Computed example of a mutant assay.
Amino acid sequence: MSAHDDHEPHHVSSPTEHLIQELQLHGYRPSEDERDQRPPPEDRLIEGAIADIFDALVATITDTSLNADLPDLLWSTVNMFHRAVDRIEQKLDDNEQTQKQLQREQDGSEVKSLELERRIDIGMNLIGRRDGMEAFREAAADRYRIATGSPWSPRAGSRVNHRHLTASLIDSRDFLAARRRSDTEVLVPVGPKIAFSGGDTADHRQIWAKLDQIHAKHPDMVLLHGGSPKGAEKIASLWADSRKV
């Protein structure tokens, strides 16, 4: 009998075992490709955490040889959250393009439908993350102003706070956008544009028959004509009034 017969050989852990160990140690953590149902941090907790960070930096560095670097350090602290917002915005842009592509590819299959739903969930998760990081940035910007006496601003790009978009403001913007669309559609109606020109032809039966044929093929057609008070264009105009085109 060998002296090593009672030695247990090394077993490589399986993916399932690794997953179970991760769950035991850290609990369930949704990936970026999953909808995260956990709530974001409360505003009061965010403000408290940011206050602690700034208070620690100011108390540690003030009246030391690093005092001249304090404004830059405080600015960079705010910028850290600002850059996080930018990164999430880029992911949101990619998600939007993916959703548009999936919308075009919808063929009624469950696979395509589920993939679109998954991308929508990811987009909603990204919006929540962006709003949370904006809350951190705004709280940090307030602390920066208190500590330095100057407002914080990024050195490049813009600073937008989506949480300031209240429901009333969104409804108002939607209303104005819809009004602009309706005003535009009056001048440039939607639908295929059919240009008509018939000179002085007065055969109204032939003109109406041809226009009816085109209308049957394009029910949402828009008739374009010169508006002449006589001849073929007048006949076409009367046809359009009759057919509600």
Rank of each mutant, 00 (worst) to 15 (best):
L74C: 10
T60K: 13
S109R: 01
D131P: 00
N95K: 09
R119Y: 05
D52C: 09
A51L: 15
E105I: 01
S109L: 03
V85C: 15
D52H: 09
R130P: 01
V85H: 02
F54R: 05
L126G: 03
S76P: 00
R130C: 06
M80Q: 07
H82K: 04
L70D: 08
L66F: 12
E96C: 08
D55H: 14
T77L: 06
Q97Y: 08
L74R: 06
R118F: 00
A68Y: 04
T64W: 07
D107R: 01
A84E: 10
G123W: 00
R119H: 09
I122W: 01
D63N: 15
P71C: 11
L116K: 04
L57S: 14
D86E: 11
V85R: 04
H82D: 09
A51W: 05
H82A: 11
L73I: 15
L57I: 14
I53A: 13
Q99C: 10
E89G: 02
R118W: 00
I120V: 12
L126W: 00
F54D: 12
P71Y: 09
T60L: 15
G108V: 03
Q106Y: 00
D52L: 14
N79T: 04
K112L: 14
N95R: 11
R87G: 11
S113A: 13
M80E: 09
R129S: 07
R87N: 10
D86I: 06
N95P: 02
Q97G: 13
L116T: 04
N95V: 08
T98D: 14
T98F: 04
I122H: 02
Q99V: 14
I88T: 11
Q99Y: 02
I53H: 08
V58N: 10
D55G: 15
A68V: 12
L92N: 06
N125E: 04
V78K: 02
L114D: 12
L114H: 05
R118E: 11
E110M: 06
F54S: 11
R129W: 02
S113Y: 09
D52R: 11
W75H: 15
S113H: 09
L70G: 07
Q106R: 04
Q106G: 02
T77C: 12
V78N: 04
D63H: 14
L92R: 12
R118C: 03
G123V: 01
D93Y: 08
Q103E: 13
R83A: 10
T77I: 04
G128I: 01
D131E: 12
K112Y: 05
I127Q: 06
N79S: 05
S113P: 00
L126I: 03
I127T: 08
Q99I: 15
W75N: 13
Q103F: 05
